[in-house]
């Protein structure tokens, strides 16, 4: 009965309205890239001799001044690691309460969630270097300013991710312990914490890893660490020493990466 056959049914992934919106988004994306390209104002002359300049720089950097390490780099490097570690720990202490308050399932009070999120966003919206400038102005140059800069930038990162980890927990165990008459403290420790534990350590280690790299440049604004040595070498055009500092940072980052990978493997 071909004449009784119903009209072939069609299926489309997107409706007409959705297609229009998608087209508009793509158009906007292209327009943004074009506009950005114009405002950057690339100067062709500088672009053309960039390879030459790069080569020149590398030649000046060689040979790396390893002899400079014991007297000019080592102390700064250790200070950088201390800034990163203490800064991460301080951030953790401050971030956990905000993370708990930001999680909508644990703290079902929208104004409190909003306030906590506001604090976390504020912390993240300021770059470490800007925090460092602020703290150098308040506490004077040195490692204290660096540590506080690292800590204040990290609060937002740690708090946001800890809050999200809490929001992703299964609600079954929470329900079960609530039904047993457990209080909020006991719920956090027995129902939420075991669930977020792997994510928590993973987040903390990742932030420490980032902080080792970030604290390496804080010295450029006078906030202590290996960046001070880098700044001095750059200002005096001692390129072999600049190379030494870069190598030191590179090695530390590699070691940190290896350590983090190993630790993460054990705790998951």
């Amino acid at each position: 009965m071909p004449e009784a056959r119903p009209e072939a049914r069609q299926w489309r992934r997107f409706g007409a309205g959705e297609q229009l919106v998608r087209f508009a988004v793509y158009l906007l994306l292209v327009a943004t890239v074009v506009a950005a390209g114009r405002s950057v104002e690339i100067i062709p002359e500088f672009l053309y001799d960039a390879p030459e300049q790069m080569q020149d720089l590398l030649v000046r950097m060689w040979p790396v001044d390893f002899a400079h390490y014991p007297k000019g780099v080592h102390a700064g490097l250790m200070e950088t690691l201390q800034i990163a570690t203490l800064g991460t720990l301080l951030a953790l202490v401050l971030a956990v309460p905000f993370g708990l308050l930001a999680a909508r399932n644990l703290t079902p009070l929208p104004p409190v969630n909003f306030f906590a999120r506001l604090v976390l966003v504020a912390s993240r919206s300021v770059n470490s270097l800007v925090w460092a400038l602020l703290f150098v102005a308040v506490f004077g140059p040195g490692a204290l300013a660096g540590m506080l800069a690292i800590a204040f930038r990290s609060i937002g990162f740690l708090g946001k991710l800890i809050g999200e980890a809490i929001e992703e927990t299964a609600k079954g165990p929470v329900e079960a312990l609530t039904a047993a008459g457990a209080g909020t403290g006991a719920l956090i420790w027995y129902a939420y914490w075991p669930q977020i534990r792997p994510a928590f350590w993973s987040i903390v280690l990742l932030r420490w890893d980032i902080n080792v790299r970030e604290s390496a440049v804080l010295g450029l604004v006078g906030a202590g660490g290996i960046g001070m040595a880098l700044d001095t070498a750059l200002n005096l055009f001692q390129w072999e020493r600049v190379a030494m500092v870069l190598v030191a940072i590179f090695v530390v980052v590699i070691i940190a990466e290896l350590a983090v990978t190993q630790v993460r493997k054990r705790i998951l």
Binding site: G172, P173, A191, P194, R197
Partner: peptide, 9 residues
């Protein structure tokens, strides 16, 4: 509970 709701870890 149906899904036991134990704390897995």
């Amino acid at each position: 509970f149906q899904e036991y709701n134990l704390v897995e870890r």
